[in-house]
Design a binder for these strands. Structure first.
Length: 570
RNA sequence: GGCGGUAUAGCUCAGUUGGUUAGAGCAGCGGAAUCAUAAUCCGCGUGUCCGGGGUUCAAGUCCCUGUACCGCCA
């Protein structure tokens, strides 16, 4: 049996993510994981918070907390919200875990032994008042080009000129405001990606089936200008994984930590160890080591396009470069951006809807359905409240929810709350089963190839088929002359509800669960055989009429939310 | 400035290796039905497929070029 290792890009720790972040990695990854589990595949679905780096330190300072405490808290917050969205991670780890410390240091040592790490001395701005080196963007000053007074150290926001922090007139730290800055020499480790260029290129060239978005970004970095550049993998910071060469100290690198982009992807592996250490699994190596059983694993990564370079180049350079038998990624599913009502979602400006706010407004299924059925696969896509209201009301409330309602209520009034007995299937029923079989196979194809929007479209068509059938069969009029036949029709329709619950579970897990409960069954077997799947609920099987499965979003609510989320987040 | 992505019906989007009258959902209009969350079902599209060249018997689909938006890099 094929096994699936699935990872979602790691969300950064410094705050709650918005819907654009969610739909770009975690949500489609969850869809795929749930689908594969539903098909009976063995799945290990991992995600973790990415916790190191300057932004985390600054956010902690702002919150007045030690950075360790801050990260621990925010990890819990993010884990709780992920749970709220029903993201079914087998483990939600932390890049700051001891497992990741050890593994990151191991990789660094191994790469150094193989000559893939160099030590480079360079000059960086040091702030005496802050007691730390400052990344370029944390230094501001007057632009030498246009005179703009808060130009950043990497680029002037006013005239867009690219700058070096030393170019700025009257530079100051944006952290403390201090002007007491000086250039200091500091030594850093560089991953010699340039040495790996050919190997990476050959590897990428074998991935002809990857989305063009993924390979074009990788090829650009491999071939742009002077080709793939070496990359600094250490920083002068306190918060991070201490630089070590395996278990040994690294002379000259005291007090430094690995750069977040070196240690974060390694957490994909460490997370599997955390999963075992948390008592949830027993053998992480059979997922990650090709010499220990991972040969039959299919590894799929999900991420937004901004993360593609690290996953196609930096991380592969790390694991391929180690010359150890690590499992490399088989397929990278990347996404474009989701825009918000004519502009971008913005974490810093609080524009758009954030994950916690979304759940305060509506249950997870509503968001999951809209986001997945509008996933930005081929290009950037856009969230508008009108579209959200329309899609959710039409698809979930009218097409699916109302189908359940009309079937169960009709049955209750004519036959009582149990699957009716008698009658036989005729041509209409056969035609429906044929159509469903075709559509379900198409749905399976789209789901396995991670065509998210097409999957949603097909699933919706499957829901619609049920309404079409009812309309053609018209049990409400048949009942007047031939109650037995009406019974057969309704028996089929009730079975459709169970079938829909099973098929829809990856998209709308809560509703799926509620429908199965109403149908009084825990049979979630996949409909490999559609006719058989439509006879699971036998004559006489008791059920209950469920509460409204999906309520509608009113115009008032939509207008209210529209204004509420237009501006700043409090 | 370099590179990449995208530009298809009012809206959101499909359009495989170029091949018959360019499609779907929503919205809109008309009708049917009345079991149901005023839900459902059926019917209705004269769209410079961003502009301009070119290749071809044939281009939304390939090439060149221009424009717009988005992103990455410098």
């Amino acid at each position: 049996m094929a096994r699936h290792l699935i990872t979602s890009a790691l969300p950064y720790i410094n705050g709650i993510k918005h819907l654009g972040n969610l739909v770009g990695s975690q949500l489609p990854a969850d869809l795929f994981a749930r689908y594969m589990r539903g098909r009976g595949r063995e799945v290990l679905f991992l995600c973790a918070t990415d916790e190191h780096g300057t932004p985390a330190e600054l956010a902690a300072t702002k919150a007045g907390k030690p950075v360790e405490d801050y990260c621990a808290e925010l990890h819990e917050v993010q884990a709780r919200i992920a749970d709220g969205f029903r993201l079914s991670f087998d483990h939600y780890g932390r890049s700051s875990s001891p497992q990741n410390h050890a593994l990151t240091q191991h990789f660094a040592g191994r790469l150094a032994d193989l000559g893939l790490i160099s030590e480079v001395t360079e000059k960086q701005m040091y702030s005496n008042a802050d007691g730390r080196f400052l990344p370029d963007r944390y230094i501001e000053g007057t632009c030498p080009n246009c005179g703009f007074e808060s130009a950043r150290g990497d680029q002037c926001d006013n005239c867009t000129k690219q700058l070096d922090p030393t170019d700025l007139i009257n530079p100051y730290s944006t952290i403390s405001g201090s002007t007491d800055l000086e250039e200091r020499e500091t030594k850093h480790l560089f991953l010699r990606q340039s040495e790996m260029r050919e190997k990476l290129q050959n590897w990428i060239d074998t991935k002809a089936d990857w989305p063009i978005l993924t390979t074009s970004i990788a090829n650009k970095w491999l071939n742009d200008g002077d080709g793939l550049q070496d990359r600094g993998i250490t920083r002068d910071l306190d918060w991070g994984i201490p630089v070590k060469r395996g278990a040994e100290d690294w002379p000259g690198m005291e007090g430094k930590v690995f750069y977040v982009w070196f240690d974060a992807p390694i957490e994909y592996i460490a997370c599997a160890q955390e999963w075992v250490d948390a008592g949830k699994g027993s053998d992480w190596e059979r997922w990650w080591r090709t010499d220990k059983g991972a040969d039959d694993v299919t590894y799929t990564q999900f991420m937004g396009k901004d993360n593609v370079p690290f996953h196609t180049l930096s991380f592969p350079a790390t694991i391929l470069g180690s010359q150890e038998p690590w499992k490399a990624v088989d397929y990278i599913k990347s996404f474009n951006y989701l825009n918000y009502d004519g502009g971008q979602f913005s974490t810093s400006r609080g524009r758009g809807v954030f994950m916690d706010q979304a759940l305060e407004i509506l249950p997870a299924d509503y968001w999951r359905w809209w986001l997945l059925s509008h996933a930005p696969e081929s290009s950037d896509s856009e969230f508008t409240w009108e579209n959200f209201q329309q899609s959710v009301n039409k698809d979930l409330a009218d097409v699916l929810g109302n189908f359940v309602s009309r079937v169960t209520k009709f049955c209750r009034s004519k036959f009582g709350e149990e699957v009716p007995t008698g009658g036989a299937f005729g041509e209409t029923e056969t035609a429906l089963i044929t159509e469903l079989t075709t559509r379900i196979r198409a749905y399976e194809d789209h789901m396995s190839s991670m065509e998210v929007r097409k999957s949603a479209q097909e699933l919706r068509a499957i829901w619609v088929a049920g309404n079409e059938y009812l309309q053609n069969a018209a049990p409400w009029s048949v009942f007047k002359t031939d109650p037995e036949q009406a019974a057969a029709q309704i028996r089929l329709a009730l079975n459709l509800i169970r079938l829909y619950a099973v098929l829809s579970a990856p998209f709308i897990p809560d509703a799926s669960k509620a429908l199965l409960a109403a149908m009084n069954t825990d049979d979630t077997s996949w409909p490999d055989n559609v006719p058989a799947a439509l006879e699971v609920l036998k004559p006489g099987h008791a059920f209950t009429v469920p509460d409204v499965t999906f309520r509608k979003i009113s115009d008032e609510e939509r207008e209210d939310w529209q204004t509420r989320f237009a501006g700043k987040r409090d």
